[in-house]
Design a protein around this nucleic acid. Structure first.
Lengths: 244, 244
DNA sequence: CCGCTGCCGATTGTTGACAGTTGGCAGCGC
DNA sequence: GCGCTGCCAACTGTCAACAATCGGCAGCGG
């Protein structure tokens, strides 16, 4: 009883039902166990979780605010399905966010963190050669999240996490858009070299190029069946498609 | 019934109670009628709004996900109060977001939008001379939101709105941090000139400087009583305070 | 005088039931 | 056969009551 706790505070299941449901559903969505487009019936979900509709509704509302599910006023909730346009938009924002994060993080990274980045780089190269895409993307996410977390900017970290969560599901598809896992791994390696040399500017520029790759491929639209093409509600000009 | 609707669709009060409450509370918070730190009692609020606790709880949860209110599991909800650190973090993110927005928006702005920017600029200069800070900030917000909206990137627009909402309340205080409304107005004028000349790079750079001004002042910490100083939970190094 | 223990009021978390709306389908009229 | 009207089932939106938890305070013991 006097020994140090493994965790500073163990609230002993003090978490609210709503919180548990939120984490559960978030994990289900992020792990692609719940595919985009899946309809989430309140009664069915509540019954399957063994709780009442109240906390579940609150959880769905919160996830809706985070952008993970889309709620239509009297029609229920579905796991959010990004259009191609939204996905490209998200990529642009992600580029700006991670670029800022890297500039902030480079002077702050300690030896352990750099070591972890090297580990992740090697592991990514290994999984790339093995063709294990799922594991690769897990490592990839940790790589990017590591320096975002090391930026010391909590708001940045929060927004980035929210954005990544929204992109998940499609994110794993961006490998085939990129043309190969190995090329992606090589890009990480180059970024890491810039980080090691302490050149934040160079690292950020390499990162921007790294993130832009799937954007370009997506712009030239090889992938058709990945998205809903319901960009109809916004007859905005699409000149961005003609850009190079 | 055959005449053109003023609005494409008039749902005729089809909005859900939760949505109404969300909009209401959001407006109350953004307009500073509800000051940061205000405790939001469920029973009291529900009674004052004439509704039950259910929809209100959902609204509070959603606003909590947006970062406008902070919910402590069994202690209730309060209007979010940013620490100085969080405010600075938000400023950095805002800089990255608006910089991207401006780069995207400059080639897309049409005559009417540029005209509106000029109007806003003049109005800001007028209000600055008159010393009407409240009106000034309203114009300021519209100025910045205009080109964010014109960027054509919905995700960017959504994140920016969320960020601005979180910063509101303190945002109006950044004038005194800046040293004067008139200087701020002059900076807007310069940015607008760069926009008119079509130089997105220059406009973005000027914008970054413009946004950085309150950051610097805040870093050198003239304003003490504006924030909670409860940065205690994170004993992270604060070398960012020594930076120049 | 100080600290601890046990109660108590107030507030939040959760539940089940009720009411209103939506979309689809059967049935009727043309 | 085709279109419209009116029901119907299922679902979400809302409510009021129940249960659990938290903070504070009185009272006791040291």
């Amino acid at each position: 009883m006097s020994s140090a706790h493994p965790a500073p505070d163990a609230p002993l299941e003090n978490r609210t039902l709503r919180e548990q449901v939120i984490d559960h559903l978030r994990e289900e969505i992020l792990s692609s166990r719940l595919e985009p487009g899946t309809e989430l019936s309140e009664v069915a979900l509540a019954r399957s979780l063994g709780i009442s509709r109240g906390p579940l509704r609150e959880a769905l509302g919160q996830l809706s605010a985070e952008g993970l599910v889309t709620t239509v006023p009297r029609r229920g909730a579905v796991v959010t399905r990004l259009t191609r346009r939204e996905f490209l938009d998200a990529y642009q924002v992600r580029e700006a966010l991670e670029s800022l994060a890297l500039r902030l993080a480079v002077p702050r990274l300690d030896g352990a963190q750099k070591g972890r980045l090297h580990e992740l780089c090697e592991a990514m190269e290994h999984e790339a050669r093995a063709g294990n895409a799922a594991r690769f993307f897990e490592l990839n996410r940790e790589f990017h999240s590591l320096f975002v977390g090391a930026s010391g900017n909590r708001k940045l970290e929060a927004f980035h996490a929210q954005l990544i969560a929204q992109m998940t599901g499609l994110l794993s598809k961006s490998a085939q858009l990129r043309g190969g896992l190995e090329e992606s791994a090589a890009e990480h390696r180059k970024i890491l070299a810039a980080i090691d040399s302490g050149d934040a500017e160079l690292a950020a520029r390499l990162l921007e190029e790294h993130i832009e790759v799937p954007q370009r491929v997506l712009l030239h639209s090889a992938a058709q069946g990945l998205f809903e093409e319901d960009d109809t509600d916004q007859p905005q000009e699409e000149e961005w498609q003609a850009d190079g």
